[in-house]
């Protein structure tokens, strides 16, 4: 649900990074935070446990600059990946405009990826969204690990809808901004079509 404020000349949109536990969602936001100029970002808020696992969400507001006289602002959120935080994940999807599904490329995490994808589709449907129609970009993270699954196989299992996808090593920043740019384009294309 994008929010357009004519008084402050702002377009506000919400992107949620979704995926299984330890797939690198928070790492994506940390890299974006680290590489974005101070005047274009707000605080990175992490509601995390003492062991730095996401408890509720991470939040990063970004200001991307002006387009047609409107300041374009994106709010980036992550969901907690661990299975037992299901109720929290559902809440964070409220009002989402675009999804980045971050998958863990390790073969042994493929079941977790599939479970998270199913969970996301159910939660989107519960919020009234059509999971087939919401703007989505898929990121195959941890491509540097020796046990990384072949991309063909990952696409077959996780991307039957043919969404655009990117390889990433989020901990080194590889593929992070490419993924963000792609989902921002998709969300702004929706705004363009709606207004």
């Amino acid at each position: 649900m994008s929010f357009i404020n004519f008084s402050s000349r702002e377009i506000n949109c919400k992107i949620v990074y979704y995926g299984p536990g330890l797939c690198g969602k928070t790492t994506n936001l940390q890299h974006i935070y680290g590489k974005t100029a101070a005047d274009r970002k707000g605080k990175l808020i992490s509601l995390a446990t003492e062991t730095e696992r996401t408890l509720f969400f991470d939040f990063l507001p970004l200001s991307l600059g002006a387009i047609k006289g409107f300041n374009v602002r994106f709010h980036l959120y992550t969901v907690p990946g661990q299975v037992f935080y299901a109720a929290s994940r559902k809440l964070i999807l409220k009002g989402v405009d675009g999804i980045v599904f971050t998958a863990d490329s390790q073969i042994e995490r493929m079941d977790a990826n599939l479970e998270s994808m199913d969970d996301m589709r159910l939660n989107l449907a519960a919020q009234g969204y059509d999971p087939e129609k919401i703007p989505m970009t898929i990121q195959y993270n941890k491509r540097d690990l020796p046990g990384a699954a072949p991309l063909v196989e990952m696409n077959r299992l996780l991307n039957p809808g043919g969404h655009t996808w990117y390889q990433a090593v989020a901990v080194e920043g590889v593929g992070v901004f490419e993924t963000l740019k792609d989902i921002v384009k998709k969300v702004l294309a929706e705004v363009r079509n709606s207004y």
């Binding site: 274009r40 991307l64 387009i67 047609k68 409107f70 702004l188 207004y195």
Partner: peptide, 23 residues
Amino acid sequence: NAVGEPLFADITSEDIDRLFGQT
């Protein structure tokens, strides 16, 4: 859109690319 004319219909891919050029 109560303004009466398309607001963002002419947003181009280049406009969006420029946003990231500024980041």
